[in-house]
């Protein structure tokens, strides 16, 4: 009897974090796919309108930017904008809902490490960011005929950027006390940073001190790194872009892990 009990204890003492990780990722992906009309379609429609209005109607009257057709120039930025907003929003809204409805406790009482919880939510956010990014890329095919000149840089910059903003979304959700708190950052921080991050223009066009000030906008590095992967042209050296996004990833991951470890916002 005791042998059986000890065996059961030993089995239970070896919970698989890999299974837990895939469970969280699966749940997160199913969540945003279940409500695809709210999560996947709107960014594609917005990108379509941007391309139609800024790229097609207004862009046709704008001369080449850094040697590229204006439409071709803005496509990488529009894809990156969709990736950033969706990676962020997915994690912030999902984690916050779990916190507010208390079903985050299902994870907290289970033998799941904080790294697994963080990785699961972040990969869910990255999955949505990349899904929307792919859809916007598909839409872009109707307006532009560009193809990535360096697939590795394009893909790695997309993944690193979406990881960074998924981490930021989780940090936001940990501190948020209401749904207003999770909409403030996308509306009043992310959107301005993205618009001012070189999506629609080259910073070389900006007068001083705006050109210098732009260098403090992290989104500028991501948009330009991604643009380098697609067009082979950028305002920023591509290694600087990778450096910035890597540093932000490390800092945000450290902050998120500390918050989960201390149970801030989720434990008493």
């Amino acid at each position: 009897m005791s042998t059986q009990a000890d065996t059961m204890t030993a089995q239970a003492a070896r919970p698989s974090n890999a299974v837990a990780f895939f469970t969280i990722v699966r749940k997160e992906i199913r969540r945003f796919m279940r409500i695809w009309v709210q999560t996947i379609v709107p960014p594609a429609v917005s990108a379509c309108l941007y391309m139609l209005i800024f790229g097609g109607l207004i862009g046709s009257r704008i001369s080449d930017m850094d040697g590229f057709r204006y439409m071709d120039y803005i496509v990488p930025g529009l894809i990156m904008m969709a990736i950033i907003i969706n990676s962020y929003t997915n994690v912030s809204s999902s984690f916050f809902a779990a916190k507010m409805q208390h079903f985050i406790e299902e994870l907290l009482v289970a033998p799941v490490s904080n790294v697994t919880i963080l990785a699961g939510f972040v990969i869910g956010g990255v999955a949505r960011g990349l899904t929307v990014g792919l859809l916007v890329s598909f839409v872009a095919l109707f307006f532009s005929d560009i193809v990535p000149v360096n697939l590795f840089i394009t893909f790695s910059m997309a993944v690193l950027t979406s990881t960074m903003f998924a981490l930021a979304g989780l940090i936001n959700a940990v501190f948020a006390k209401s749904f207003d708190d999770i909409s403030i950052v996308p509306n009043f921080v992310l959107t301005p940073l993205t618009y001012l991050g070189g999506v629609f223009y080259s910073i070389s066009l900006l007068p001083q001190p705006w050109q210098t000030l732009s260098a403090f906008n992290p989104v500028l590095y991501m948009v330009n790194g991604f643009r380098y992967g697609i067009l082979g042209a950028s305002d920023i050296p591509v290694m600087h872009s990778f450096g910035v996004v890597l540093v932000f990833n490390l800092v945000f991951a450290g902050v998120a892990m500390t918050l989960l470890h201390r149970g801030i916002g989720i434990k008493s």
Partner: peptide, 9 residues
Amino acid sequence: NVAGYNGIR
């Protein structure tokens, strides 16, 4: 989901 969190295949 809870089974998965507990490492059950």
